[in-house]
Computed example of a mutant assay.
Amino acid sequence: MQQVTINFSILFILLFSVISCNKPAEKASSDKKTKNEVLVLGTIHGGHLTDSVYNIDYLQKLITEINPDYILTEIPPKAFKTAMDGFKRDDSISEPRTMRFPEYVDVIFPLSKKMKFEIIPTAGWTKYMAAQRGAKLRAIRQDTSRADDWAEYVKGNKFSDSLYLASGKVNNPYFIHTNEYDSIQDIGLQTYNTLFNDELGLGGWENINIAHYWNIEKALEKHRYQGKRILITYGAGHKGWFLKELRKRDDIELLEMKPFLDAIE
């Protein structure tokens, strides 16, 4: 009887040891966090209506292939409710700012009826900011004492455009989603930024990107570690700026666009 008791005690100790050893592993497993996947889709706005390749149909196929859980958009939060209410009521978009973007009017809002993603407005744009920026740029252009600045700005844009044209890949969705494209765009945009960002206030290139990205970050933080797929959709010129910031985060997995482009070819 004593031998049985001793054996049982040994068995109990061994079993307790095994369970105790497993607890840290179980805890580590439960604490493991699933990163969200993030993609940045560079759009060409009105160009989607006329381009022979990167058009509305192509965008529909691409976003369907990506199959996001959330789509972060270049729509101001204050404009979004009006846009969505109108879409639900009339099956069309009548909100003025949103109407400027075929990628939303003709693709993302209609797709939301048959796909299960949430549209999140993240644009830092305001009507006042845009009006002030336009007025300040007109004043700079007309100011003879700023002729050199304006000439440098125009030169930077022309050089950037010439490199883009020389690539032979204008509006090519593969090329748009490369670092080379971002570098070409950056030539003109950084000239613009260096010359005028501070002067243009909230409408400056760096400043508006900060405003956009602040809203993007709020969305990323809200849905952090949910194991979801998040698609950021902005004009392609913003893509390089956003990617630079997104690469600093260790809580997301940045996905390349190429596999999704390949999938719809």
Rank of each mutant, 00 (worst) to 15 (best):
Q2K: 04
Q2C: 14
N7A: 06
F8H: 13
S9L: 09
L11C: 08
I13E: 05
S17T: 15
S17L: 12
V18M: 12
V18Y: 12
S20Q: 12
S20D: 07
K27T: 13
K27A: 11
S30A: 04
D31F: 08
L41D: 10
H45T: 15
H45Q: 14
T50P: 02
T50L: 07
D51N: 08
D51K: 12
V53C: 14
I56K: 03
Y58Q: 03
L59Q: 12
L62P: 00
E65I: 09
E65V: 00
I66G: 12
P68V: 14
Y70G: 09
E74N: 09
K81C: 08
G86F: 00
G86K: 11
D90P: 11
I93T: 01
S94L: 01
E95K: 05
P96A: 11
T98N: 09
R100W: 06
F101W: 02
E103F: 03
D106M: 10
P110Q: 02
K113G: 04
K114A: 07
P121S: 04
T122I: 11
T122Q: 01
A123E: 07
A123V: 00
G124I: 13
W125P: 07
A131F: 02
G134F: 05
L137V: 06
R138I: 14
A139F: 00
A139L: 05
R141I: 00
Q142H: 15
S145A: 04
R146V: 00
D148E: 14
D149W: 07
E152K: 06
E152Q: 13
E152H: 02
Y153C: 09
V154Q: 03
N157E: 08
K158Y: 01
S160D: 01
D161K: 01
S162L: 11
S162C: 04
L163Q: 06
A166S: 14
S167W: 09
S167L: 14
V170M: 10
V170W: 01
N171K: 05
N171G: 01
N172G: 03
E180F: 14
E180I: 13
Y181Q: 10
T194N: 15
L195K: 04
N197D: 02
D198T: 09
G201Y: 12
L202H: 11
G204Q: 08
W205S: 01
W205M: 03
N207L: 13
N209A: 10
I210K: 04
W214K: 15
W214N: 13
N215S: 15
I216T: 12
K218P: 13
K218N: 08
K222S: 14
H223T: 04
R224S: 15
R224E: 03
Q226K: 05
I230G: 00
G240L: 09
W241G: 06
E245N: 15
D250Y: 03
I252C: 08
E256G: 06
K258S: 10
F260C: 03
F260R: 01
D262K: 02
